[in-house]
């Protein structure tokens, strides 16, 4: 695409919105985790399935200039401490992130989506 148009800001309606993404992520996680109990045997598949599903739903939002990174952490609740944190170096005007936490049975799940704008 040599004749590609460069823009500095996302067009109206084409900007990543954290609230929309969070709603999607909660839906996906709740749907995929329903009835699950933590097992080291299934957790890798489960994580892959959830992150793939979220990624697909984010793509379906039709935000043409965005790249997405979806990270899903699934852990077992056994009274242990865990702490997750992230930091980004990016353009705060157009790039964004959304994160949700979800607890069910003995599983805790944290899903984070990062959206990076390409100019």
């Amino acid at each position: 695409m040599a004749d590609r148009d460069f823009v500095i800001r996302a067009a109206q309606g084409e900007k990543f919105r954290a609230a929309t993404a969070e709603k999607i992520m909660t839906e996906v996680v709740a749907e995929q985790l329903a009835g699950e109990i933590f097992s080291m045997l299934t957790v890798e598949d489960l994580g892959r399935k959830i992150s793939d599903a979220i990624n697909q739903r984010l793509k379906d939002l039709n935000l043409p200039r965005y790249k997405f990174i979806v990270q899903v952490m699934i852990g077992e609740s056994r009274g242990q401490g865990v702490h997750a944190m992230s930091q980004c170096v990016w353009d705060a005007d157009v790039d964004g992130m959304a994160t949700i936490n979800y607890n069910l049975n003995n599983i805790w799940c944290q899903a984070t989506a990062f959206a990076i704008f390409t100019y």
Partner: peptide
């Protein structure tokens, strides 16, 4: 580059499992 750094700190005393998976849609 634009950088994203994420870090998770897990106490390992209880022998609980953790899985971190990520999927990206990018170049």
């Amino acid at each position: 580059y634009k950088f994203i750094v994420t870090s998770a700190l897990l106490q390992t005393a209880n022998g609980s499992g953790l899985n971190v998976s990520s999927v990206s849609y990018w170049n």
